[in-house]
Design a binder for these strands. Structure first.
Lengths: 158, 158
DNA sequence: CCCATTTAATTCAGTATTCAACATTTACGG
DNA sequence: CCGTAAATGTTGAATACTGAATTAAATGGG
């Protein structure tokens, strides 16, 4: 059993680190969302556009897109429907596996991506990257990488 | 104007740091949510409980609670309604300012908090804190603190 | 070759979040 | 004081997210 006095409560240092991380992730997402708003995109929209832009032929299977954006299939399906209605992507059926579908960037989606990306990068710099002293960023990533690996193993489905 | 070649794209190092941060924050929230599920709480529920537990008299003004949990007033209002229905919290009117309301922890809310907290702390340790070499955690927090400060200044409303 | 499993993706119902509109009370400038 | 502006919270409708159930197609053991 777990009694109260057994519990390895967080030290002050740990508590501060943890809460700072929480605050930064939430505030940062809000800020990036706000910076994307003038372009009519959400963070989720943008991330889909990035993934498709970087993909072979500007297309990815729904499954792969769900995996790489860390979303459930259900959520991705809704998300793509919305983006399809907005004209940014389209669905195309897959020859080799008739269950499958590709999400494909449209011309308009690609144009949007190229137009918005510089502003988004500026936003990421302004509110995150450029606030680290050059050395620290490397250390920051090094610290976080094992955490990311651990979490990826831990999770079953989303 | 902003042309493509003007844009200070992220370097490889920067890109990796940024994406790792993104992945960790999302995966971590999912994992914590999953670990709370057996207790019938969401991350949001838990955070409200923490804030009220630490507050004078186990009560906070709706506004203050919204500010410290970084949520909009509307969202908090709905959230508290749900928690009220679940018996964790109740609303009490405020003497000194008749517009105002307190959110107050109920007995059941306080019991729940004490029962769940050890498990939640264990979860935070397992998936985050304990994955940092002792020295690194301090450096991690130090790097993130200016980011948090910047973001707090930047944001107007939520 | 067939049936049982697994995989791909969507749908539906329930829940949560956002955004704007609203009611009420307080603050403040003249 | 008065009247306008600002602050506190809630509400409702529209939108988004979740998790389970569903459809359809591929896989694989006997």
């Amino acid at each position: 059993m777990t009694t109260d006095s057994d519990t390895p409560w967080l030290t002050d240092q740990e508590q501060r680190a943890w809460r700072t991380h929480l605050d930064v992730s939430r505030l940062l997402m809000h800020q990036l969302e706000r910076d994307l708003q003038p372009f009519g995109l959400t963070n989720n929209d943008y991330e889909i556009l990035v993934n498709l832009s970087e993909a072979e032929d500007h297309r990815l299977r729904m499954s792969d897109l769900a995996t790489s954006t860390l979303q459930s299939k259900s959520r991705l399906s809704h998300q793509i429907t919305r983006m399809e209605n907005a004209g940014l992507v389209r669905r195309e059926s897959c020859e080799s596996d008739r269950r499958g579908l590709y999400a494909v960037l449209t011309e308009e989606g690609w144009d949007t991506m190229r137009r918005v990306a510089p502003h988004h990068v500026a936003s990421v710099r302004k509110h995150f990257i450029d606030l680290f002293p050059a050395e620290d960023l490397q250390a920051f990533r090094a610290s976080l990488t094992p955490v990311a690996e651990h979490l990826r193993k831990e999770r079953g489905g989303l």
